[in-house]
Simulated assay, not measured.
Amino acid sequence: MTRNGRARRTPDCTAAGARPRVRTRHERRRPDGEQAFVIGVLTSEADFERARAWHLSDAPDHETYLRETAELLTEARRRFDTVRARMFHPQDFEEFCLLHGLDPAEPGARDRYLVNPPLQTQLLAYQGEELAGDFAPRLVRARDNGLTLRHADLLLDGGLTGEGGRDVRAAYQRGAEVFRRMLVGAGAGVYELRLAVDAPGGRLTAQARVLQWEDGVVRINDEDLELVCAVLCAGLARELPGLAVLHGARGTAGARDGGAGDGFRQTAWAWASVGQDWAPAAGPVRLDGVAAEPGYPLGTVC
């Protein structure tokens, strides 16, 4: 299975040059000489208005702010070895400042918030995507994913982010194998996986969009794959009930070289878990508004 994205690195940097109009950024030089750049993005107009009091940007409106931020990201890719971004969530920032006794209007508070270790899972590598297109929604999902990852990690006593024990590692591998078999059995197509596991402290959920070609090559965002495997791991390790639905368009519209395809067929499969393993659902189910029929036995998929 291949996936889209690069390996994540811990951000490091030192402020240099004139201060830009967009001020939710952090720079540092690593001991090995590598330069990294991290920026927080106000992804919605409501968040932009709420953050005005902290003077994070001189932009008159959110549309201008996004355009200036996109220009800053483009410049950063030319100057730095690593460029990463995360959603700048006003409520998260206020709570962080309250917890650490910081003044939200001080630039140092923003730097500490951006590189706060427990929130590293919310960072995404920026590789030139259109900010106002797909990248901003990915930042929102990355925040949601990060909160779910923290919940799953707590259920596993830090086994996801720390030195996970043998049982946690085995459960993670089993979860990854469950997901792989779902995709192999589905075949080529464009799908979305919806996953829900009933856990102490609240339901764990994950979603992932998947593009799979006839030769088995898969495209999936790194952060989505990480979350799916983590939720499956937590469910298997803690033996929690869960439900998974894989739905979308099965088939090919044409080979990647432009050849003829066999068309698409809409389909939806469902599997349930009682904690020990995943098996076809007992009957038709609905998850997040998506109706699905019992899936194929995963044990029959190589």
Rank of each mutant, 00 (worst) to 15 (best):
Q122R: 11
A234R: 05
G33W: 10
E94M: 09
P118C: 02
L42W: 01
A268C: 04
T10M: 09
P118S: 02
W278N: 10
P241T: 06
P200H: 04
L246V: 09
P11H: 06
D12E: 13
A142V: 04
S44W: 00
R19K: 07
G165Y: 10
L119H: 07
Q91Y: 06
P137N: 02
Q122I: 02
L298M: 07
G146S: 05
L99V: 03
H247D: 05
L193Q: 12
L183D: 01
P117K: 00
A105F: 01
E49Q: 10
C233F: 04
Y126R: 04
R67H: 11
R25E: 13
A70H: 12
P297K: 14
I39V: 11
T24D: 05
A206G: 11
L243R: 12
W54C: 08
Q122N: 11
L243K: 04
R150P: 05
L287E: 13
C13H: 12
E68S: 06
V285N: 10
A206W: 04
A230I: 05
A268Y: 03
A292D: 13
R78E: 14
T121K: 02
R8G: 14
P107M: 08
V178D: 02
A152M: 02
N4M: 11
G202E: 09
A85C: 15
E214W: 00
T252W: 00
F135Y: 05
Q35R: 15
T267A: 15
R21Y: 01
R30G: 10
E223W: 00
A170N: 13
H89W: 05
Q35E: 15
L149S: 04
A237E: 11
V245F: 04
A196E: 11
P20V: 05
L99S: 15
L154H: 10
A230G: 03
W269D: 11
R174I: 03
Y296G: 04
E68A: 12
F179K: 03
D257G: 14
A36V: 03
A176W: 03
A142R: 01
V274N: 15
L42C: 01
L131K: 09
R9I: 13
G299Q: 07
D92G: 11
A85S: 14
I220H: 07
V115F: 08
V245W: 03
